[in-house]
Design a protein around this nucleic acid. Structure first.
Lengths: 107, 107
DNA sequence: TTTTATAATCGTAATATTGCAATATATAAA
DNA sequence: TTTATATATTGCAATATTACGATTATAAAA
């Protein structure tokens, strides 16, 4: 088939899967790391920094935005991308909760 | 194209992406949660528990095994799947390190 | 207004993922 | 040995993802 059967899982499970999916690409990991190291709100040097074409980067940024992990502020003809600190910490907490709640009663 | 350009990213970035990819499916999340709630080393009631066909579950288990997140011990004609506690904690630490190292100097 | 620069969107090719039926394998029970 | 049960593997159809060229939209600069 090719389509994930989200209907048979609960909201939390699907939510976790979506977050993990957004993070499941090295380009998006690299973009997040790069954005976070910039002192000023540096924008599409991302294209120069990462070795991918501009439409590709733009698409990855869109996916990161889809879960609010980053925000883009328009600054003239440039767009300034920043990590959404609130969401970032929220997600970290959510993932830790997943890892902590999974118990090891077995073997 | 359709292929991720892993060559242009570093080992850590690719490693993180692979871990996130394995976790990026609600069936695999559900399997991990189910395995972890079982007191005894219960095996493939997983198929009955999750609403997916046996070959599909088998494939998901294989992917979870690919990063050593679970282990399967053969017990007669059954196989007993358990979470690999060591790896589990290792991955949690790795993800936290990723989340912690990402700074917020921006906006 | 025209040009230039920046970033988003569209369309598409290559490849990956999801899920399942059919089949294979392996072990236990009869 | 035969049969039944549990799990893995194979092959395939449907769909998703990745990447990029071409194009479009927007705004600053000339």
């Amino acid at each position: 088939m090719g389509i994930t059967k989200t209907q048979i899982f609960n909201t939390r499970q699907n939510e976790l899967a979506v977050i993990f999916k957004v993070l499941s690409n090295p380009a998006r990991i690299a973009i997040l790391q790069y954005i976070s190291t910039q002192k000023a709100c540096i924008c599409n040097d991302i294209v120069d920094e990462i070795g991918l074409a501009q439409p590709t980067i733009s698409q990855h940024l869109k996916e990161l935005k889809s879960i609010d992990l980053i925000q883009g502020e328009i600054d003239g003809k440039k767009v300034c991308y920043c990590i959404n600190l609130k969401k970032w910490k929220e997600i970290q907490k959510l993932l830790n909760s997943f890892f902590d709640k999974t118990k090891f009663n077995c073997c």
